[in-house]
Design a protein around this nucleic acid. Structure first.
Lengths: 166, 166
DNA sequence: TGTTGCTGGTTAATATTTCAACTATTGAGA
DNA sequence: TCTCAATAGTTGAAATATTAACCAGCAACA
C-alpha cells in the first residue's frame, strides 16, 4: 500500500547527523558574523574584502568581472554593485577588455593595494581567533578537505549564480 | 630595529592553512546558495525555514523572540522582520508573554506546521545532496565536531547580535 | 515610592542583495 | 554575409538586512 504513496521517501537525518548539521549551520553563521565584525572598523565587509584580496593576488592586480564573480561566489549583478562600492572608495577602477569588448576588468589601484595590506593583518588574526586556533591542526585541515569536496561538487553546475541559465 | 615596529606581527596562514580556509569560504557560500535554491520553489529562504523548524521542535510550537534570535543567529531586528514575513504568510502568530510583559512569543500555526512538514522533506534531501552524501560518514561527523567547537567558542560572547552591548 | 540602568522588542532610515529586464558583443552555423 | 543563440555586464526596482534610535517593562536599590 505505502509503495504507491511514498515513491521516494526521504532519508531523514540520524541523531548524530542532525547534531553535526546543526553545528555546521550555527557555527558557520556565527563565524561569518565574527569575521565581518572584525572588518567593520576598516569600513569593509568580508564579501568586499574577498574581492580586493583576489585582485591583489591576480597578475597585474586585475581580473574580469565574471572570473571574480565565480571566485568569490557572488552573482553577476551583485559583483557589479560590489565593484561600484569599491570604486567609489577609490580601491579599484574598471577597465575595458581589449580582446573581448563585452568584458570589463576590475583593476586594483595603489590605494586599493595599500588597503588590502592594512586589512589583511586584521583579517588573518580574526580568522585564527574565530576558527583556526579553536581547532586541532589536523582537525582544521580535515575540515578544509571536506569543504573542498563540497566546493568541487557544487561549483560545477552552480556557476549560474544569476538567473541566467534555465 | 624591527622590534619597535611590529609589536604584534600576525601569524600569516601556511600554504595548507590557506587552502583549507579558502575551501571553507567558497564551499560554505556555494552550500548556502544550493540550499536556498532548493527551498525557493516553496517560497521560503533557509533563514526563514530555520525559524519555523525551531518552532516546530519547541514545546507548544512556541518560542520567545530573543530565544529564537539566538538559536538561528539572527539579530533582534532581523528576527522581527523575518517573523513579520512568516506572519503575513500565515505560518506563525505573535502572542504576548504572560510572565514578562515586554516579551513576545512566536507561535507556529497549523498551517505553519503543515508547511514545515512539506518543506522538511525537500530540505533534508538537499542537505544530503549538497553536503552529507558528498562526504565519507566520519568526515561529515568530524566536520560537525569541529564546527561545534567553533559554535561554542563564538556563541559565548557573540550573543549581542544587535548593537545592544557596547 | 522614585530613580536608574538593563532587557525585549519594534521602528524608520539606510545599505545591501536579489530579481527581472535590457544592451552590446561574440560565436556558431545556414 | 546573415541570423540566432549564448555570454558579459549593467541597470532600476523590489526584497531583505543592518543601523541607530526608540518605548515599555523589569529589577535593583536608595
Amino acid at each position: 500500500m505505502t509503495s504507491t504513496i511514498n515513491a521516494d521517501a526521504p532519508r531523514w537525518l540520524t541523531e548524530p547527523e542532525q547534531r553535526a548539521w546543526r553545528a555546521y549551520l550555527r557555527g558557520s553563521r556565527l563565524l561569518e558574523v565574527s569575521l565581518d565584525r572584525a572588518l567593520a572598523p576598516h569600513g569593509t565587509q568580508l564579501s568586499e574584502y574577498e574581492v580586493i584580496s583576489m585582485l591583489s593576488e591576480a597578475p597585474g592586480g586585475r581580473l574580469r568581472m565574471s572570473a571574480l564573480a565565480d571566485l568569490v561566489v557572488q552573482s553577476r549583478s551583485r559583483i557589479t554593485h560590489t565593484a561600484a562600492r569599491l570604486e567609489k572608495r577609490g580601491w579599484v577602477v574598471r577597465e575595458a577588455c581589449l580582446d573581448d569588448r563585452r568584458g570589463v576588468e576590475l583593476v586594483l589601484t595603489d590605494a586599493g593595494r595599500t588597503a588590502v595590506g592594512d586589512i589583511a593583518q586584521c583579517h588573518v588574526t580574526s580568522v585564527r581567533d574565530s576558527m583556526i586556533d579553536l581547532l586541532a591542526p589536523e582537525e582544521f585541515l580535515g575540515l578544509g578537505k571536506a569543504m573542498q569536496k563540497i566546493r568541487d561538487a557544487l561549483a560545477e553546475d552552480g556557476q549560474a549564480t544569476d538567473a541566467h541559465t534555465i
